[in-house]
Nucleic acid binder design. Sequence first.
DNA 1: TGTAAGCGAATTTTCGAAACTTCCCGAACT
DNA 2: AGTTCGGGAAGTTTCGAAAATTCGCTTACA
Lengths: 255, 255
Amino acid sequence: MARILKMPLETTTRVAATTAPQDVLAEDAATFDVLRRMREDILCCVLKPDQRLRFGELRQRYDTSVGTLREALSHLVSEGLARTEAGRGFSVAPISLADFLDLSELRVYLETRTLADAIHHGTDAWEAEIVSAYFLLSKLKPPRTDDPVAVKREWAKRHKRFHDSLVATCTSPWSLHFRSELFDQARRYHWLTMIHARSRRPNEHLELRDAVLARDVDLSCRLIEKHIRTTVEQAASEVPGLTMDAGRPGKRRRG
Amino acid sequence: MARILKMPLETTTRVAATTAPQDVLAEDAATFDVLRRMREDILCCVLKPDQRLRFGELRQRYDTSVGTLREALSHLVSEGLARTEAGRGFSVAPISLADFLDLSELRVYLETRTLADAIHHGTDAWEAEIVSAYFLLSKLKPPRTDDPVAVKREWAKRHKRFHDSLVATCTSPWSLHFRSELFDQARRYHWLTMIHARSRRPNEHLELRDAVLARDVDLSCRLIEKHIRTTVEQAASEVPGLTMDAGRPGKRRRG
DNA sequence: TGTAAGCGAATTTTCGAAACTTCCCGAACT
DNA sequence: AGTTCGGGAAGTTTCGAAAATTCGCTTACA
């Protein structure tokens, strides 16, 4: 059996976060709340790629001031979920197959790296959280095209929690930070895939869970790699309009 | 330790740089200027690690409003150069040896990955820029402790330009993005090392330049890896007070 | 008919002040 | 002596409006 390190319970979920980069703006009440809601709206394509983000509409939608919006938008820009051009305001970051391929390649490295390290430093509490997160995920079937949005959102939430639980004991704050950013980026494409999904996939999460709990580093890494690559292939073949170019109609010409 | 997985870089097909993540907030005039100046001040430890960033002082120093400052600070937080706690405002991100070790490990991967890809896609213009950047760097000797700050800053600027030129033709926008963020993080530690440097190092940049221009991927990667690790070792042994913990001295009273 | 300039509306950017929270210090009480 | 409570100051967060800029439409002209 795998060797279980005895650690104080306190260090279960929070991993040696000594000098970790700060993923989140801090629970700054209003700003943080707006940021979270906007991020979710971009990830779930309520705010569509390349869509212009005017302050007038945003102010109405999120019921807040321009200053607060500006701060949240500024944060989204550094996460790569929004863009800004001097004098032209903000817009949702574009998507493209090239982008998805690129970020997925990096994801393969970061997910395997963090997962291997997490398995190495796994604890009982870590295993328990994985079991719990998988249980919650498995209670919902992967959503289909005609499922209501609320169901899709809940599934996406549990899906994220499961994957986060796998790497929770990784000891590299920077790896976790970048992994998290890329995972969120990928969520946009996952959402599109979910919307248009025709094919069904076998339960890769169960395999992954068992491999991780068995502390099989090689198998776990191979599974997560395959998991990522399969998703890319599925998106490439089943999401209409996901082309190699940025999908941005260069210059608007009249007519 | 931490063996580098040799990945098929070719799989990153021709990625048009169209969908690159936006490193920069955009040349938003005021905000961007303040952001750049603050970042430089943090990198060069004018604003010291863990230092509290009060709006009163900042407003005076950068001659701008709270709103603008807030936006710049918010951006620095997502870059990992600042922190914020609800209701307690902002502060400069702490430093520690653990942090430097962690980010350097990731840097080794990202620098080698981007460098290998850049060499594969190198052009004449790319080579020319490397030659030019190296020339400018070599005109200044690595600064010593007693050199004026302006000299140190200029050297740091040229040093960054040289390293940026090496990877300029890399086709992976996300890899470049994260490489850039980590390079800036490392600059804080480089600055500290420069301040306290006792030992001198051989001219690693010349070796690196020649290996890259010779399109020798393996040698180039080995050299950049050694370059990074040597810097870490030098900082660990020569920078006083750079310990493994977060180095956060609980309470700080102004004096 | 095509091009360029000009004007008005819409939008973004910047700012200073009001509202709110936290922190510090002294006084009263156990 | 130590602890708790309260008042005041310092600092942060949020907001709406003023200033600056861009965009689209109309008009003038070759």
